[in-house]
């Protein structure tokens, strides 16, 4: 098994989780003693059609 892989024995106890989305899931993991980092995710900006056409032409 690769060095960093999680699964499955608690003896290894090395799960480190990046959470994107529901904060409650991160809180549930922290309550179990797991190191969790939350991603301050923002939706990608939607290009307006004019800009998209310009980019399509360029690319």
């Amino acid at each position: 098994m690769k060095e960093n892989k999680c699964c499955c024995s608690k003896k290894q106890k090395k799960l480190k989780v990046v959470n994107i989305g529901l904060q409650t899931f991160a809180e549930s993991l922290r309550a179990q003693g797991v190191t969790v980092a939350q991603v301050n995710w923002r939706p990608p900006r939607k290009l307006d059609s004019e800009m998209k056409n310009i980019l399509d032409d360029l690319l």
């Binding site: 892989k5 959470n19 994107i20 899931f25 991160a26 922290r30 991603v39 301050n40």
Partner: peptide
């Protein structure tokens, strides 16, 4: 006080991060 990232691009697996949980 918890570690945060502004995007998944900032995550460095060398720091031990090994699972990404996604609920977007």
């Amino acid at each position: 006080g918890e570690e945060t990232f502004n995007s998944i691009d900032e995550v460095d697996p060398a720091d031990g991060w090994n699972l990404c949980q996604i609920s977007l």
